[in-house]
Amino acid sequence: MKIAHRILMLLAMSALAIVFVTPLLFMVASSFKSEDAIFSNIASLSAYMPSESWSLDNYREIFSRSQLPSFLLNSAIIASSVVVGGVLLNSMLAFALCRLRWGGRQAVLAFVVALLVVPFEVIAIPLLSLVARLPWPAIEHGALTLQTGWFNSLHVQIIPFLANAFCVFLFYQFFRDIPQELDEAAKMDGAGPWTLYWRIIMPNSGPVIATAAIVLFIAAWNQYLWPIMVVQGTGARPVQPGIQQFFGRSESWGQIMAYATVVTLPVLAVFLAFQRQFVASVVGSGIKG
Rank of each mutant, 00 (worst) to 15 (best):
V282I: 14
P137Y: 13
A280H: 05
A143E: 06
S129R: 10
V117I: 15
A212S: 14
S252V: 00
R101C: 12
F174L: 11
E140T: 11
I178V: 15
A236C: 12
Y224H: 13
L88Y: 14
R176Y: 13
G284D: 10
I62W: 01
S44I: 07
S91L: 05
Q67C: 05
A107N: 09
A29M: 03
R99F: 14
V168T: 07
V83M: 12
P137A: 04
I42F: 06
L68R: 04
W102G: 08
V168E: 04
M27I: 00
I7S: 01
M27D: 01
M92K: 03
G289M: 13
I228E: 01
L130Q: 11
I7Q: 08
G142T: 05
Q173M: 15
V263E: 02
A143L: 10
L144N: 06
E251I: 14
S285L: 13
P137Q: 02
L10D: 11
A258H: 03
L25T: 00
R6N: 10
A96I: 09
Y224N: 08
Y259D: 03
L8N: 15
G235D: 04
V208L: 04
L162G: 00
L182S: 10
L115N: 10
A210T: 11
G235I: 05
I256M: 12
G233Y: 02
V87H: 00
L56T: 04
A273P: 15
S75Q: 05
F161N: 01
